[in-house]
């Protein structure tokens, strides 16, 4: 009896000790003193995640290959038609570009170079349902640093995905724009009003845009394109984020509140591009 009691006490004490250690770690990490141990964990597990993702991909590719072949044939036919159309468009585009360059020169604008980017594949999602981050297969080894912006292309449109929040040796963690910790300085493309986009935590819920001036009410239309304003150094200006789906003019608020549907369908996103921006690289290295 006494021995069983001693054993139970020992187990409780041991558990309490482990809980205390994890609580201390939690206290330290929530004050942002941690970083190194997380990077170790990320590097170790992302190695396994890469393997599991590869194996899963192989199985799914094999199973889908027959249907894929039929689909490819169809898309090949469609693409041939598109190539024909694009050939025609290319000729008119070249004329327009020359005209645009001439006009820009006359207006004194410098032709701004587009940012350089690194392509990456999503290899895993956050194992916790409360968090919405995902892991990419590029890391410090490929020149990725914290706070770099991430974009994706869907249906020929470039859309903002999020930013790099943690970097391992060969992988990095990205917080999407719908994450509750994401704040993006935005601009309504048509009316040019500024606002701040805040995520709701899930990709299904709309992103909220706050601090839009009340006088903009009559100028905002449903479906208006929302782009990054570039006011925040993290995201380059002019990247599409989403389209306005709802406008709320609440009496007790001094500004309008908009709801926006992201341009990117996060559910079918596989590949993304990490923007290599000198400003964030310097910040990330600090």
């Amino acid at each position: 009896m006494a021995q069983r009691y001693r054993s139970a006490t020992r187990r409780t004490m041991g558990s309490a000790l482990l809980m205390a250690v994890s609580l201390i770690t939690l206290v330290v990490s929530t004050r942002s003193l941690a970083g190194f141990p997380e990077r170790i964990g990320l590097s170790v597990l992302s190695f396994l995640q890469r393997g599991f993702d590869g194996a899963g991909q192989f199985v799914s590719d094999t199973v889908n290959s027959i249907a894929e072949l039929r689909r490819l044939e169809e898309s090949h036919r469609e693409l041939l038609k598109r190539v024909e159309n694009l050939g025609n468009l290319e000729r008119s585009y070249a004329d327009l570009k020359r005209e645009n360059d001439r006009l820009k020169e006359q207006l004194g604008f410098l032709s701004s170079a587009k940012y350089a980017s690194v392509s990456a594949k999503i290899i895993a999602r956050d194992p916790e349902n409360l968090y919405s981050t995902f892991v990419l297969n590029k890391g410090a080894l490929h020149g990725i640093v914290k706070n770099q912006a991430v974009v994706a292309y869907q249906n020929g449109i470039e859309g903002l995905v999020g930013r790099v929040v943690e970097v391992g040796r060969t992988s990095c963690v990205v917080a999407p724009i719908y994450d509750t910790s994401a704040f993006v300085a935005v601009k309504l493309e048509r009316s040019r009003y500024d606002g701040l986009a805040v995520g709701a935590g899930t990709s299904e819920a709309p992103i909220i845009i706050r601090y839009i001036k009340k006088r903009a009410k009559d100028e905002i239309q449903f479906g208006d394109l929302v782009v990054t304003s570039g006011m925040q150094s993290l995201y380059p200006p002019g990247i599409s984020i989403g389209r306005v789906t709802k406008l709320k003019d609440l009496d007790y608020l001094t500004s309008l509140e908009l709801e926006m549907e992201p341009i990117i369908d996060f559910g079918r996103m596989e590949y993304v591009f990490i923007i290599r921006n000198e400003t964030t690289e310097l910040e990330g290295q600090e």
Binding site: R10, R11, L18, A34, L42, S43, V165, S181
Partner: peptide, 30 residues
């Protein structure tokens, strides 16, 4: 299992999970 096997494995794997999650380090361990 008797003893601390489950709790200690939970602690160690929780720390590992915190590395790939956006959760603060130590949360899953706890």
């Amino acid at each position: 299992s008797p003893g601390l096997q489950g709790q200690s494995v939970g602690f160690a794997t929780g720390l590992l999970q915190d590395g790939i999650s956006a959760a603060p380090f130590g949360l899953n361990a706890f």
